[in-house]
Design a protein around this nucleic acid. Sequence first.
DNA 1: CTATGAATTCATTTTATTTGAATTAAGGTG
DNA 2: CACCTTAATTCAAATAAAATGAATTCATAG
Lengths: 301, 301
Amino acid sequence: MDLKSLNTFHRIVSLGGFNRAAEELNYAQSTVTMQIQKLEAELGVQLIERGRVFQLTEAGRLFHEQSAHIIRDVEHLQANMSDMLLGEAGSIRLGAVEPIASYHLPTILYSFLETYPKIELSVDIANSPVLADRVLKGELDMTICSAPAIGSDLYFEPIFTESLVYLIPANHPLAAQSAISFADIRHHRILLTSKTCTYRQRIELALRETCGHQVDTLDISSMSALKSYVESGLGIALVPESMATVDGTRSVARKMNDYPITVTFGILCKTANYPLKLACAKLRYHLKQAFDHSDSGNRDA
Amino acid sequence: MDLKSLNTFHRIVSLGGFNRAAEELNYAQSTVTMQIQKLEAELGVQLIERGRVFQLTEAGRLFHEQSAHIIRDVEHLQANMSDMLLGEAGSIRLGAVEPIASYHLPTILYSFLETYPKIELSVDIANSPVLADRVLKGELDMTICSAPAIGSDLYFEPIFTESLVYLIPANHPLAAQSAISFADIRHHRILLTSKTCTYRQRIELALRETCGHQVDTLDISSMSALKSYVESGLGIALVPESMATVDGTRSVARKMNDYPITVTFGILCKTANYPLKLACAKLRYHLKQAFDHSDSGNRDA
DNA sequence: CTATGAATTCATTTTATTTGAATTAAGGTG
DNA sequence: CACCTTAATTCAAATAAAATGAATTCATAG
């Protein structure tokens, strides 16, 4: 396939005829014919109905739809690459929820900036709804968070899923068990993050379904503070696996036995600036790579 | 940009040198050099570090990442188009949740099959988790449902968001109000769909937060049955807007006043068969178009 | 049965790509 | 440090593709 012919095809479709396309593109009529013939020969299907009135074949409509984004992507890439000529490597205003920002991002961003040292990067840490709002307002280019109540103006791309685990003080009686059920925690205090947090809602739902209302809870706004509270013996928390497994001397992680909860994190950006500006596209790619690897690592373990 | 040069560039990168790429692609070494030079000239940046050891420049790494999907898309399109040569227009095993299947799909699928009459289409109606499961098992090519608890094996693409509205019997006392608060429904019976339904969970959460536990509820498994129940005066239901506004003689729709709930529907498919087979890609495109239009239509109304 | 707008054919010209032989460049080795 | 090796580049010539213009076909509205 040839991008020149592809482009000609699209012009033909949008202008509704070979002649008009030829005129627009400064080709002879015969050139246009040749290009389309070549394209059709290559694909092995007729694309354009050659009657009196201009019409695409079914295959043609299809090809038109499917090839549109190829053209768009090529143009986008070209435009962005020539920006680099000017010495701009690009900047990224990234948002991230706390557990990601604290436990995954440091190493990932380190390697990212090693590869692309010229990119300017800022990281804004907040909870998912706040981050989503900032993305919408254009204050952030993209953010890593859990799937929000997506409106049509936001585009979410899942990156990885984590299980929640119980985080328990090392000297707690329940620490002896390898997995813990809801029944076990009935009479222990549960530490929860703020109401805006996505898993907070999932956890609450689960608590209500299994234990009713009589669970003793305590709200802590910050995820990493939560850990310190657990370690002081204030209670049990439910946290993403990756967060719990870092240096476990004073607290231990235990699996959820009867009602496993998972949370999905991904990249959220505005539909309006899609495709992403180049630096963001790089970071997105880098993140996907990084999480894919750590993911398969987890599976093996 | 030229696809031939682009492909050569990728071969160079994957084989780690101009010579090896030339050999693989049956080119003279000079051809490879020329192609890369042309590419670099066109983009205005150097892509490959020309030292002793083979290495990409920063721009090169970037270009490599960003152009990869263009190559992949072109190959995919080419492969799929030639399938059509064999007369296969493709088949789609589509899943859909009930409100979508009953209220949106009929017209959309009608126009879709008018455009692509040769495509074989089947529609499987179930709730979101069941549909997601069938997609995972490969029993469905794609499904329209609300955002699930996405694992890394599933890919969700949001299409449109709807608000929930109260559906009230026409002769009900609350039908006189134009918008309804949770306080208003405290002492009325609420009809809910099955527990597996996605909005069921959202609604329950809202009910609990605002009314505590003392709400009288009744479970109805089917969405469209729900409507008949409402019309018989059995109680009030919360349903997606589009479902409520169809022929409103015996029931009326009222906005949620104090705690608006929205649900997002989208396309769910397996990450494994991405990019989608051609027929599915067509349908996805068609759905997006259709919902985009009805969306903006709603906004105006 | 023409007149007309639209697409195609084909021989020719123009342009781009490819090639091979020679050249440069950068390490490694004795 | 000369010499070898491997890798990339240069450049004129050969080859292949793409573009052109004039002539031709085709369908159909008048």
